[in-house]
Design a protein around this nucleic acid. Structure first.
Lengths: 145, 145
DNA sequence: TCTTGACCTGAAGTCAGGTTTAGGTATTAG
DNA sequence: CTAATACCTAAACCTGACTTCAGGTCAAGA
């Protein structure tokens, strides 16, 4: 059994955030002891892990709450739960692709300002396609088309 | 030369957002014609592209504004600009890594609810390590340790 | 001429996702 | 006994990034 302070340390989440999740109904199975203190068993800790996973994948607090409600409702909601994770799977895959494009542009910008520092000016812009190494040229053209 | 409506369509950004960026100083070079209408030349369009890139990489509006100010200040700020892009490069790389972990957990959850639907219950949880295909088991153990 | 559509401004409003505050309880160390 | 520590609640507050609103200009077409 963990206290809120321990859970806070495990997940590097502020205590206030965990209480907020509880208030929003994200931890329906959470128990309190006789002096009104939250007690986290393995299941409750797992719930936090799922919350973090869904959060990172872009699910809203309301969406996570819905999921937790489905979990309470038993086997009849397996379909909905699967659907949610499949939606989030696609969303994360798309997000990774987008970040990879962003990363290419940023790498180009790093190269660009590196050159600018070397030359003291940006006049080399005119010759970029020539100057650019092969493996970077392609993403440059993609980023600027 | 593009109107704000055209730029809005090109980048799929609401007109109000572009005006907001202008108000916040993200488009210092933007000109207006004699009837006070914004006119976007290629440079201003490039600026929007950079704004989107920095935004996707997690830079705040204030951070982007600082960058635009440095661009106005000339060659003396190449160092700062490079530093910014290097910071964002690291940030995006870390974000991609985190999303890849998230994706693994989500894939596991998809597999899990797929099984749950197949069996009509979650009793197979006991045997997960046995049931799990080799390539998934490792991330399962990672995700649950 | 009038009205439709695209543009403008400043100010106020919105929303998610927390965080902070104020005031209180319970347990433990000195 | 008391003081520090860890916990509690309800409610107010905050922040970033927009969005909406109210009211106005301007050019073109019927």
């Amino acid at each position: 059994m963990y206290s809120i302070g321990q859970v806070s340390k495990i997940f590097q989440l502020p205590i206030s955030t965990i209480r907020y999740y509880d208030k929003e109904g994200l931890l329906p199975n959470l128990r309190k002891d006789n002096s009104n203190t939250r007690k986290f068993d393995e299941e409750a800790v797992e719930a936090i892990r799922v919350i973090e996973c869904l959060k990172k994948s872009g699910t809203s607090i309301k969406g996570i709450k819905d999921f937790m409600t489905w979990c309470e409702e038993g086997p009849s909601t397996y379909g909905k739960r699967l659907e949610l994770f499949e939606k989030q799977k696609k969303q994360v895959e798309d997000e990774i692709k987008e970040l990879e494009n962003t990363l290419n542009m940023i790498k180009f910008k790093c190269w660009y300002y590196d050159k600018a520092m070397e030359y003291g000016n940006e006049d080399f812009v005119e010759e970029i396609p020539e100057i650019l190494p092969n493996e970077v040229r392609e993403s440059y053209i993609k980023a600027h088309s």
